[in-house]
Design a protein around this nucleic acid. Sequence first.
DNA 1: ATCCCCTTACG
DNA 2: GCGTAAGGGGATC
Length: 948
Amino acid sequence: MSDQKRLFLVDAYALIFRGYYAFIKNPRINSKGIDTSAILGFTNSLLDVIKRERPDHLAVCFDKGGSADRVEMFEAYKANRDATPEAIKVAVPYIEQILRAMHIPIMVKEGFEADDVIGTLSKQAEKEGYKTFMVTPDKDFAQLVSENIFMYRPVFGGGYETWGIEEVKAKFEVDDPLQVIDFLGMMGDSSDNIPGLPGVGEKTAKKFLAQYGSMENLLANTHELKGKMKENIEANKELGILSKKLATIMLDVPVEFDAKDFEMSEPDIEGVKNIFQELEFRRLTDNFLKTFSAEEQSSPSENTSAVSSSVQQTVKKPTSAGAGQFSLFDAQGNSDAIITNQDARITAATNSHFYQSIASGMATKLFIQNLMKQTSVCFDTETTGIDPITAELVGIAFSWEAGKGFYLPFPENKDEAQELIEQLRPFFESETIQKIGQNLKYDIKVLRKYNVKVKGKLFDTMLAHYLINPDMRHNMDVLAETYLNYTPISIEELIGKKGKNQLSMRDVPLDKQTEYAVEDADITLQLKEHFEKELGDANTQKLFDDIEIPLLRVLADMELEGINLDESFLNSFSEELDSEIKTLEANIYKEAGEEFNIASPKQLGDILFDKLKLVDKPKKTKTGQYATSEDILSYLAKDHDIIQHILEFRGLSKLKSTYVDALPNQVEPTTGRVHTDYMQTVAATGRLASNNPNLQNIPIRTERGRQVRKAFIPRDENYTLLAADYSQIELRIIAALSEEETMINAFKNGEDIHASTASKVFNVPLNAVTREQRSNAKTVNFGIIYGVSAFGLSNQTDLSRSEAKELIDTYYATYPKLRNFISEQVDFARDNGYVQTVLGRRRYLKDINSRNAVVRGAAERNAVNAPIQGSAADIIKIAMINIHKKLEEGNYKTKMLLQVHDELVFDVYKPELESIKTLVKTEMENAYKLKVPLDVDLDIGDNWLEAH
DNA sequence: ATCCCCTTACG
DNA sequence: GCGTAAGGGGATC
């Protein structure tokens, strides 16, 4: 590089947006509920540029007030951009603070865009002999590139590329960077709302530029074009000229390049640290200090240890110690000292580690001896598939020291595999060795098939993180990147994308298996260290130890147990539905006058509203289609037979495809039963979710639908199904938490709560409450749980908006403490950034202080709903754990099979029926003590429908 | 094959 | 109005 002075001009918003979207699937929320994604992303990029390039001169440019000139030229200019996300709006003042503390100048000029400011400054600096680098991913800037002006573009996946004249010429296929303006003018830019020439995209624009060189020359020669293209362009010449103007970056903004001002200087280190501390950027602080300290290199530490000669080893060292690469650990092996560098992530290739696979025989014996001496071990099973019931063990990885681990491959032969697992049995069944894993439910289920029970204390990193931040995702890759700044080998890299050519883990070479599997165990171990602390900070240690971890074993048992399904019943039901659907189809085609796909909302909307014109002003969905949902069609059903038939068609098709036909396919051949998978970490409120198949949404509300429940049957004639469900648990919780005496007493007296509410709200005696009054009271009762509005209530009932409002007002007057409770929840969320359940399960509400009323409203409803829904989830989880324990201790043959949020279903061995009924009712009703009694209804039957 | 949209099933 | 899973259609690669 020459000794020419170098100026870096940063396009602030471009990097802020980029930072924000980089975290969009996994936003960073600090304990105060601030979404810091954009701030973190921007600051990381900025430090990265400084560290890589060590610029002499640097400034950051912002937009302000948009471009007055461009809006004047073209009203729609940038008009239909999405509203700026809340996180970005709150980010800007912080970023300005950070820049001020770093003593980096902020350039902004009212009425001009950052493009124009950067353009003007770079041309001025060029005259003074500077080399200028415009830090932005935005292609528009290519027009400014010259001999001394470059684009410095962040590229996807990390790193930067520099665009000079040659690069711009190649990318845009032009002779001069200035032609980029013509290029953008021709093809337009939807994000900037530059209209462009109709029918001209990237390809055509390049062709035109090669041929005509400029917009003006193209427009002067349109006679040479032909067909539709000729018409289009001739009719839009003005638009072409306008587009080119809009795409032109201005070079005469009233700003001045002052070399002295832009010179890099010492930052106010304490000031920056304070801001980072407020934002809770711990690792970024380290990164900042390294960036601005003279000694930024740290040499990689040795993490290897003596290796026995009988094992195959794979030791990797950092490939280089160049800038941007770091050791994973400091000298103390302290993983908290990791240096983040978003664009140069640490991967196995850059990190020192020691992973080894263990050969059979003596090596295994020695390994197991060593394993048994440990007090806490992380393990991860590798199998032939993702379904634990059919998957076979391919190997198991172990790690008990960060950066180090072992892989024990399993033979394909079943007897030999069983022999190996027998050697490991003492480890898995040890009560004293703690087992650490990511999603241990899976490993436990796999091992159970080899007749091994995992005992001892457990630590599941996925569950830990679910409690730390339930709104995030919890797969290991995300956790590793977020908390360790480490990118693990992806499973796709190993076995290929899913589909036809995907390999089984068995087909992967042993050294690759070892690298992948031990890495997972190693990372999981490191995550555990991290989360242990955070669980304490969030006060959720008890929830983890007493609820989620014990529940994991309960769920594993329920899933392995499965439920018996009456397939022949479903098959005949399917035929019955099929013939009815065919009849309905024929009727609908006749009424529509043509055949079409009734199941396609798009085609259906066109038939109903374009062809038949059933309504004057049909409603549209947000994507511009006609809305044809149940609630809209129901209004029309009584006037039009076709609508009635369509609704019936929909109902029957859904029933058939989702349940009647799908369920028999989900029967596991090896067990003859249906095994759902309960997901313990997806519902933000603490509920479980069920999938493959979902057994939590089996129909019950319509007569026809609930027939499906007849297909769920006991194990055999010696068993019967028992369904136990909490009566009104959410209303009981809100009554108890709000301490609303009137409602508490109604529950204590065993009253019908909706009738009781109606009697009080409508001021009539309990026995004079009409059906309609009860029904409206019921709607409000439920509405309260969801955070009701007059608007929502009137939509749900026959009441008008004002009647609905009056009803809500009277309701609050009747139950004043309920209203207090609601505002207390919202206040708590505003002050703390989260709300919590009876057991302290938190839900963070980052939007609770949003200035956008719609967004804030949703957060406020969450503040009310999450503690209620979540507390109900907490309570049934306690009941499940206690019941499971009692069933084991009592050696009952009865098994718990299903959980449906407020209901548990059991396969009861008939001789045990009476004691089970008492056991279940007692445990459920006493799972948690509230100021309101809990009440459980029990039902028994030869299928799930009868048991209700 | 994969993603998004719309609709609908449950608590 | 809260929380989920899943099917089919249709666009896109």
